[in-house]
């Protein structure tokens, strides 16, 4: 059976098929035969084709692509050591490299460990352009100036004026809170909720911001406590 000339591997985002040496027409036919016999497996698949050193120009490739797309298979990339093939593939808008990257590395969420009580302590003024990210809590003894940026998996406590951007519960922890002696952040986020400070009236008081019914609310510390 001709199928033994075709090697099929599962890869991260689809199927990799290696086509052995031999007449291209035969190989192509064998491949399509094989696909037809296993329609269930191939249907909707994304295909990466390794054609080795074979020099194929675009009419061949586009014919193959059409045959594949008739079978509801998307030809994604052609791997080849032949320059001719690579160029033809590029002309057809096909990739010429296997997508090595692991499936979309999600912007590494900061793991929250609210009860682990790990914290970073900063005794200084955080200035514009300075950014602190920590998976636990962040405690600042000093001011957080406008343009500074804090992101914590847990809580953020500022013993000073908080005027920059803060994100507590950056890993999605909705119980996280932000406390400051003067809570006037440019923007305050808890988990996935975003809020801005209303203009302050009267004297500054220590405040705590937290989520209540999915809304960020700020409360006088002494009333809350």
């Amino acid at each position: 059976m001709q199928a033994k000339e075709i090697e099929i591997k599962g890869i991260k985002n689809g199927i990799l098929i290696e086509i052995k040496d031999g007449d291209w027409k035969d190989q192509e036919e064998a491949l399509l035969d094989h696909i037809d016999q296993n329609q269930g497996f191939f249907k909707g698949a994304k295909l990466v084709l390794d054609v080795g050193s074979r020099a194929l120009n675009s009419p061949f490739l586009s014919a193959l692509r059409n045959s594949l797309s008739d079978r509801d298979i998307k030809l994604k990339a052609i791997l080849s050591t032949s320059l001719v093939t690579e160029r033809a593939s590029q002309d057809l808008g096909l990739e010429i490299k296997m997508d090595e990257s692991s499936p979309e590395p999600e912007k590494s969420p900061i793991n929250s460990i609210l009860d682990g009580e790990e914290a970073v302590f900063l005794r200084r003024t955080l200035r514009s352009g300075q950014k602190v990210e920590y998976h636990g809590h962040i405690v600042v003894l000093g001011d957080v100036n406008p343009g500074a940026d804090l992101a914590a998996g847990g809580n953020i406590i500022v013993w000073g004026r908080l005027r920059g951007v803060v994100h507590a519960g950056a890993g999605g922890e909705t119980e996280a809170v932000v406390c400051a002696l003067d809570l006037s952040p440019t923007q305050l986020r808890i988990a996935d909720k975003i809020s801005v400070s209303p203009p302050r009236k009267g004297k500054t008081r220590p405040e705590i911001a937290r989520l209540e019914n999915g809304q960020v609310i700020a409360q006088d510390w002494f009333e809350y406590h």
């Binding site: 200035r127 514009s128 352009g129 300075q130 100036n145 406008p146 343009g147």
Partner: peptide
Amino acid sequence: EISAVRDADRIIGIVE
């Protein structure tokens, strides 16, 4: 002026 003070703050951070 707020924008000038913001930049000054950034500069101070870099100098430090």
